[in-house]
Write a protein that binds this DNA or RNA. Structure first.
Lengths: 156, 156
DNA sequence: TTTGAAAAAACCACGTC
DNA sequence: GACGTGGTTTTTTCAAA
C-alpha cells in the first residue's frame, strides 16, 4: 500500500493523465526509459491503487447535458441514519457527479449535471422528498472555464 | 459534428467510461456486437469529439493531495481584460481542477486540490495578489462522498 | 456486419548489470 | 534489486467480402 513514488513514477503518471492511449514505447520514450521498467511501474501503481481507473472523458454538452449546478446544502440533521440515507440517495443518482461533506456553515456541496433547468428541478424535488434538508442553494454554471481531472505531479 | 448517437453508441460509451482498458472484443461482447462495428463507432465518436480524452484516474490522497476546497468568488470587476487575466490565472494553476462562471450572486466557483491548508493559503494569496476580487469564501471538504467523471448514458 | 490478415502493442521470461 | 533484449500472445487496425 505505502508504495514509494519517485520522479520516474510521477513522469509516467503525468503522461498517462495526459493521454492514457499512448503505447508503452511512446511513454518510455517521453520519460526517458524503456518498455519493461515502465510496464512494471505502471503495474505496481495499478496494484497499489494509485491508478484507480482507466476512463474516457466525454463531451457533456454534445451528449445533451447542457446544465451544470453546484448545490449548497445545509441540514439540521446530523444523525447516522439520516446521513446514511442521504449518502445512498446521492450514490444512486447518476446526475450527481461530485458530493463532498464540508466543514463549517454549509454541510454539503454537490455538482450535478443534467439536461436542463427542468431536469434539475426534478432532481431537486425528488431529493428533498427523500431526505430532509434545511436549506438548499443552487448555483447555475454559465460557463465551464476549466475542467481537468489531472493532478499536478511536480508541484514546485 | 452533429453526429447522431444511438443506443449502441451509448452502450459503448458507458463501457468505456467504466473501463477504457477493455479490449474491443470485450466491449463488443458486453454491448452485444462485434469487433469491427464497435471499432468504427469508437473512431467516429473520437473524431466527432464526443470522446475527448483517454485518461487515468489517480488516488489524490495517496499522492499527497489531502485538501480539497471549493472557492466561491464575488467580484465587482466585469470588464473584458480583467476577465481575461482572471481566466489565465486559473488556467495556469494546476491546483485548480474546475472553474465555472456562475449566474447570480456569486460570480465564480473553483475546485482546488492542494496538499494541505497551508498550500491553499499560498494559492489564495497569490491569486488575490494577481487579480482583484471583491469577496472570497473557501469551503473545505471534509470527505469526498462521491466522485465520478461518468455521464449517465441512459437517463430514463 | 462478419471474416480474416497485417501491423502493432502488450505481456512475460530470461539474461545482465 | 532494477533494467534491457527478445519472443510469444493478444489486440488493434483495416482490408475485402
Amino acid at each position: 500500500m505505502a508504495l514509494r513514488i519517485d520522479d520516474m513514477d510521477r513522469k509516467i503518471l503525468e503522461e498517462l493523465q495526459r493521454d492514457a492511449s499512448l503505447s508503452l514505447d511512446d511513454i518510455a520514450k517521453r520519460v526517458g526509459s524503456s518498455k519493461t521498467p515502465v510496464w512494471n511501474r505502471i503495474r505496481k501503481l495499478r496494484e497499489a491503487g494509485i491508478i484507480k481507473q482507466n476512463t474516457v472523458v466525454l463531451d457533456a454538452e454534445a451528449l445533451g447535458f447542457e446544465a451544470c449546478f453546484f448545490v449548497l446544502i445545509r441540514t439540521s440533521e446530523h444523525e447516522a441514519d439520516w446521513q446514511a440515507k442521504f449518502l445512498k440517495a446521492l450514490q444512486d443518482r447518476p446526475e450527481v457527479q461530485e458530493a463532498h461533506r464540508l466543514a463549517g456553515d454549509i454541510d454539503y456541496i454537490l455538482k450535478v449535471r443534467v439536461a436542463n433547468a427542468r431536469a434539475y428541478d426534478l432532481f431537486y424535488q425528488q431529493l428533498i422528498s427523500e431526505v430532509r434538508v434545511h436549506n438548499v442553494t443552487a448555483l447555475l454554471s454559465m460557463e465551464e472555464i476549466k475542467s481537468t481531472t489531472s493532478l499536478p505531479m511536480f508541484t514546485g
